[in-house]
Amino acid sequence: MSQSIVEVKDVTFSRGNRVIYKNMSFSVPRGKITAIMGPSGIGKTTMLRLIGGQLRPDSGDITFQGTSVPAMSRADLYHARKQMSMLFQSGALFTDMSVFDNVAFPLREHTQLSEDLIRLVVLMKLQAVGLRGARDLMPSELSGGMARRAALARAIALDPELIMYDEPFAGQDPISMGVLVRMIKSLNEVLGLSSLIVTHDVTEVLSIADHVVIIAEQGVIGSGTPEQMLAHSSPLVQQFLQGLADGPVPFHFNAAPYEEELLSGGTQ
């Protein structure tokens, strides 16, 4: 079995005329927590969708457990997706089902387990995220952090090999954030799965990640352990990790010179 669960090789992807990635390559080691970081709007979520096979790259290859994702047939892709799961930024719980039914959903769809067994599994998963008592609530009755934890319980319902987290910490209060950080770490250790976190919350993710990939300018600008990244020589990496307002990534959106525009006397 190879060392990496996901390999991204020379991937180029564009939307319309806008090139999002150009010849990007990186790998996600098995059994570790990998963080993909980068400024907003550079297509980090797109990367997860490429790995999940919801989008296809223009060129290059992405493998999951050694098999090429873009080359998979629909049936193979659906089979592979049972071994990977994704935690969406919004949680994406089904709003017409209770928390219990949401977590039971993948089990009812993909297994032949009896309802008694499903109940046991669901209660175990909910216990793991601390929401066993909230099983009868509807998603609209949950706070943002609880919704994300419920979605996490659903994501681990089928015991996947890989979990992809899309901005798990965005918009969370410090307590929920701390809970989620610890939970991701402990799930990774206890269940022996591989985690891929897309985020721009530097401090939180550096505290748990084993491997960091920083994306900017249509490609990977640095990868390695958190320590290696903090000592990285690239000014772009440093600007991102330290959160400096101006640097290689400019603070100002492309515009005509300030004085010129103010004095030109236009209407807008």
Partner: peptide
């Protein structure tokens, strides 16, 4: 909009 369709797809449900 709330990514429920995407999450169905990612759960291998068409």
């Amino acid at each position: 909009a709330t990514e429920q369709l995407s999450s169905l797809e990612m759960m291998a449900v068409d």
